[in-house]
């Protein structure tokens, strides 16, 4: 069947970066969790690494337009996110999986994803098809009509991923998406990431260096709210020496970069 292509779909991209932060500061409570971060992300899968408390989740929330930046500039899809901005247009192009997401236990996976698709203001006629496709892509087809409260942790995570990708977002933010997934599901998830990352900007926060090396085109390393390193996974592996902690070249590179950054910060 033929489909009408809207003007918005064919409009030329006029912004160089999907996500662009300049001197971004974001508070988490009273603490400034992201402090002067400069970051530019284009199309591709970006793995966000960093120790606990590095500000990964707070950065994710700011990019998801859930919390307000305390300072600096944040530009999403060419529109500046600030006090006076109308966020509606930007939010239509966002997909977000929070680290912990609440849900209403009575609802089925399909209803949950449908509800989120509706909140994302997708055209009504396209919702059932998009929902089915999103549920299929995360491998929950058999559980589509099961109630949320009957799902295991890994399945919930996948339902969360399904709601994030249902609107084919231009910017997809996944906070710890691989928690609770078994090894086979993680491999499938990496496949999904590569697939989505072909034409959108995906930012994945994780603790698993191996996931980043396997599925990401770009590595972003944060510590204490600042950008420590941004480069390709192979380059991350090249950063480490034999004396650094870790079981793989990438892990050694990760610990070498952190050690160097901490030494510089301590001086």
């Amino acid at each position: 069947m033929m489909r009408t292509v809207s003007a918005a779909e064919t409009a030329a991209t006029t912004h160089p970066w999907a996500v662009h932060a300049e001197g971004l500061r974001v508070r988490a409570g009273r603490h400034v969790a992201v402090d002067g971060l400069d970051l530019a992300l284009g199309t591709g899968v970006h793995g966000l690494l960093g120790p606990n408390g590095a500000g990964k989740t707070t950065l994710m929330r700011a990019v998801a337009t859930v919390v307000k930046p305390a300072g600096g500039r944040l530009t999403l899809l060419g529109e500046q996110v600030g006090d006076r901005a109308d966020l509606r247009r930007v939010r239509r192009g966002l997909g977000y999986l929070p680290q912990q997401f609440g849900f209403y236990p009575r609802f089925t996976v399909r209803e949950f994803v449908e509800y989120m698709a509706w909140l994302k203001e997708m055209p009504k006629a396209t919702i059932p098809g998009a929902v089915q496709r999103a549920v299929d892509r995360v491998g929950l087809t058999a559980k589509a009509d099961a109630r949320m409260k009957t799902l295991s942790g890994g399945m919930l995570r996948r339902a969360g991923i399904a709601q994030a990708i249902v609107n084919d977002p231009a910017v997809l933010l996944l906070d710890e998406p691989t928690v609770g997934l078994d090894p086979e599901q993680r491999l499938e998830f990496r496949e999904l990431l590569r697939d989505v990352g072909v034409d959108s900007c995906v930012l994945v926060s994780t603790h698993l260096v191996e996931d980043v090396v396997a599925a990401c085109t770009d590595v972003v390393l944060m510590n204490d709210g600042r950008l420590v390193y941004q480069g390709v996974p192979d380059d991350l592996a090249a950063q480490g020496g034999a004396g650094d902690a870790g079981d793989s070249p990438a892990e050694r590179g990760y610990s070498a970069l952190l050690r160097r950054h901490r030494a510089e910060a301590g001086r």
Binding site: A64, L87, R91, L94, G102, F103, Y104, L119, E121
Partner: peptide, 15 residues
């Protein structure tokens, strides 16, 4: 009180 506030707050329909 809204368990899904973080999901809902980032959507264009929030308002």
């Amino acid at each position: 009180h809204d368990p899904a506030w973080e999901l809902v707050a980032g959507t264009p329909a929030a308002g």
